[in-house]
């Protein structure tokens, strides 16, 4: 959780720096963010490559359990399509006090936001670059919420959907930030699966985002 707080605070600090005009507005910040993103992607790959435990963890899993990430992806995409439908319907009915008016949110955008799987930093940066600040911010908020919802409702998820549910709900975060709550609610024996699930889903985020962004 400490890491999440640091990351979120940085976002808020940046917001204030701009709103109060502390940094110059004619500076090309999007070019900077692109190069920092490149550095980040390189480091993420390097970190994964250096970690010998990842391969061991994958090998120790029962074969069929290894399909769990695909179940998570299918469920998330179905959910994202449903969300797009709900937002469309609410928008045309004027529900939520007119706040569901989604502007430029296309079906591909909705699925792209879902394809963040809780990896809010990467998905928001990718979508900010490719689809603009509004979709980037929706991705940031939606994927932070995914992590928070998982932490808050993991016990209920286990009760209603079984022990794999908090792992799926955690998405890419099932290997770090939501791992403690998964361990607590599903049990120790699900920790290796949870880490494996997190690694696979985590790795899939930039792949899916690149694909869905190309669909426009």
């Amino acid at each position: 959780m400490a890491a999440s707080i640091i990351i979120l605070s940085s976002f808020v600090v940046g917001l204030f720096l701009a709103v109060f005009g502390i940094v110059p507005s004619d500076f090309d910040f999007s070019a900077i963010s692109k190069y920092i993103l490149y550095l980040l992607m390189f480091l993420v790959g390097l970190n994964l490559g250096l970690d010998k435990e990842v391969v061991k963890t994958i090998k120790s899993q029962p074969k069929r359990m290894l399909l769990l990430p695909f179940s998570t992806m299918a469920g998330t995409f179905a959910g994202a399509v449903l969300a797009w439908g709900i937002l469309r319907l609410a928008s045309s009915l004027g529900a939520f006090g007119g706040l569901a008016e989604t502007g430029s949110l296309s079906l591909a955008d909705s699925i792209s936001v879902g394809a963040g799987f809780g990896y809010y930093s990467l998905s928001s940066i990718f979508l900010n670059e490719a689809r603009g600040a509004e979709i980037g911010t929706i991705a940031l908020a939606a994927n932070i919420l995914r992590e928070l919802i998982t932490i808050a409702f993991a016990p209920l998820m286990v009760r209603f959907f079984g022990k794999l549910a908090p792992i799926s709900s955690g998405g890419a975060t099932s290997m770090d930030t939501t791992l403690p709550i998964i361990q607590k609610t599903a049990g120790n024996e699900y920790v290796p699966l949870s880490i494996f699930h997190g690694v696979v889903v985590d790795f899939s985020v930039p792949l899916f985002l690149t694909f869905f962004i190309s669909l426009g």
């Binding site: 969300a83 709900i86 706040l99 949110l105 929706i138 940031l140 998820m157 079984g162 799926s168």
Partner: peptide, 29 residues
């Protein structure tokens, strides 16, 4: 447009969580 963004994000994350929980439940069974 912060409020709009919040509503869209909330609907998206709730549906994504629900969808993945349902498929996880089916997968578990």
């Amino acid at each position: 447009r912060f409020a709009h963004i919040g509503v869209s994000a909330a609907v998206l994350s709730l549906c994504a969580v629900l969808g993945s929980c349902v498929t996880a439940g089916i997968f578990y069974k």
